[in-house]
């Protein structure tokens, strides 16, 4: 059974009266422990697909299954499902400016469990294991872009999600930091069997993944 499996996902947008077909029946599968890249031209629909896979948006038709089951449709249950099973990393890290690194990482766990001290403790361990033990109490504006993205990755991992979706996680970083982040993701995949789906238009990154798809004309193609 696949960890993630989609069936004929179709998504259209209404753009000033004109119907844009962005996703045209996507069938996509990810196995547990895989590390998958999706590339494609800008505007080809990569983010749209990722939002649907991450249950942030709904397709016009088709469905998404996790471990063979449909995700709940009711809003509260869906929020809870995302909280427990899915991690996100975005190009812009969207850390909370008024909270330090440790609190930012703890946040999804705090939302899920309401247990502040436990969340903070786990956040601290997690940040330390990612080599950020000296940045625990720094605020986002005191961190470099690469460090901020490390915090965002730690935040994505804190609830031990089945899968982490990363939308151009290195899009904002220079080559050196970009390489560090990808190495970290590779490490997490290797050591912890963490599943990743990564959107990138950097060929040097997609080539390091086990599988790489290209999005074109509303369809995914391997390679």
């Amino acid at each position: 059974m696949y960890l993630l499996e989609t069936e004929k996902i179709v998504k259209t947008f209404n753009d000033t009266g004109e119907k844009l077909l962005i996703l045209n029946g996507i069938d996509f599968r990810v196995e547990r422990g895989e590390m998958v890249a999706i590339t494609g031209e800008s505007g080809s629909g990569k983010s749209t697909l990722l939002h649907i896979l991450g249950l942030l948006d709904k397709p016009d038709s088709g469905c998404v299954r996790f471990n063979g089951e449909l995700a709940p449709t009711e809003d509260k249950l869906l929020s809870k499902f995302r909280n427990q099973n899915i991690g996100f990393v975005f190009q812009f890290h969207y850390l909370l400016e008024d909270f330090n690194a440790r609190e930012n990482v703890a946040m999804p766990r705090l939302i899920g469990t309401g247990n502040r001290s436990e969340s903070l403790r786990i956040a601290q361990d997690l940040l330390s294991s990612l080599g950020m033990q000296h940045r625990l109490n720094h605020y986002p504006n005191q961190l470099s872009g690469g460090e901020q993205q490390r915090v965002a990755i730690a935040r994505a991992l804190i609830n031990k999600p089945d899968i982490v979706f990363a939308d151009e996680p290195t899009g904002n970083l220079d080559a050196k930091h970009s390489n560090e982040i990808i190495s970290l993701i590779e490490e997490l995949n290797r050591d912890m069997k963490q599943t990743f789906v990564i959107i990138t238009h950097d060929k040097s990154i997609s080539s390091r993944m086990q599988k790489s798809y290209t999005m074109q004309d509303g369809a995914l193609r391997l390679g």
Binding site: L56, K80, F92, Y94, L96, E97, P108, I111, R155
Partner: peptide, 16 residues
Amino acid sequence: QGEIGILKAYGMTNAN
């Protein structure tokens, strides 16, 4: 807005 977006993505309810 960005922070609201990420909090929502991580399952925080509108009420909270």
